[in-house]
């Protein structure tokens, strides 16, 4: 494997966003890119990252390899990069280590680190292709604020999507609260758009603790996409350049 990423910062932000959910994971490398799929310990949330080969320049992966990496270790090394550094990831066949090289674009500084790899026996889950009943795009900072605000009142949030808009509501010991968003187009600042694409009304309840955790990815993308259908996990997607993505799935709270 040899993969050069123009922005070391991108990988650093991804790792910062997921490392409180998942600790040890395999980075699966093949000629389409670098993928990661991992569940949190309680099996309530699933992280799925895809960094497509087009996100790298150049990208070369001659044989499929799984790099088992402890994310705390990776975070330590990525913190050694300067914010504008270029990152090259390298690994041999059947590797013991992954090699990270940070290059400064405007100086001759070159730093190099090896991280020891781990043998991680991780099961892969098949995520079915789903036509979601509601697809909502909104500013990622807005979603983060809603989740944090409602978490002050309750541990769970009901998300209801109708023709009227999307309503986030909660009920707790001190009282209740809700935030409703309607479709909204801002020509000057499309990052502030709220788009709601609905085929049928949806109402689901989720744990706010996980949603707040997902929102650590807000720095990766100005917009976040929420995809919901009744009785299936919520998809929270942060789109990255070149069709790469960081996705989180969250199992709903069900029953009475």
């Amino acid at each position: 494997l040899e993969a050069r990423l123009e922005q070391a910062n991108l990988l650093k932000k991804v790792v910062d966003a997921i490392k409180d959910l998942v600790q040890d994971c395999n980075f699966d490398c093949n000629d389409s890119g670098i993928a990661l799929q991992a569940m949190d310990n309680s099996h309530v949330a699933l992280v799925s990252m895809m960094l497509k080969s087009e996100s790298f320049s150049p990208f070369r992966c001659d044989r499929n390899i799984a790099l088992g990496i402890n994310l705390t270790s990776l975070q330590k090394v990525l913190r050694c990069a300067n914010s504008e550094d270029i990152l090259t990831l390298k690994a041999e066949d059947a590797p013991d280590v992954v090699n990270l090289v940070f290059e400064s674009a405007d100086s001759d500084r070159l730093s190099e680190y090896d991280i020891k790899l781990m043998d991680i026996d991780q099961e892969h889950l098949g995520i079915p292709e789903t036509e979601y009943a509601a697809n909502i795009s909104m500013p990622s900072a807005e979603f983060q604020k809603i989740c944090r605000d409602l978490m002050a009142l309750s541990e769970s949030v009901a998300i209801e999507c109708t023709k009227e808009g999307v309503k986030f509501s909660c009920n707790g010991d001190i009282g209740s609260g809700s935030v409703t968003l309607r479709s909204h187009t801002n020509v000057d600042k499309p990052e502030n758009n709220v788009e709601i694409d609905l085929t049928e009304p949806v109402a689901l309840t989720f744990s706010l603790k996980y949603l707040v955790n997902f929102c650590k990815a807000s720095g990766l993308s100005g917009q976040v996409k929420l995809c919901l259908s009744n009785e299936v996990p919520l998809l929270v997607e942060y789109g990255l350049a070149s069709n790469s993505y960081l996705r989180f799935y969250l199992a709903p709270k069900i029953g009475d």
């Binding site: 699933l46 099961e123 199992a251």
Partner: peptide, 14 residues
């Protein structure tokens, strides 16, 4: 109240 479901209830092992 509602109970927390698991990812395994929805996504099968490959």
């Amino acid at each position: 109240g509602k109970g927390q479901s698991s990812i395994f209830s929805f996504f099968g092992k490959k």
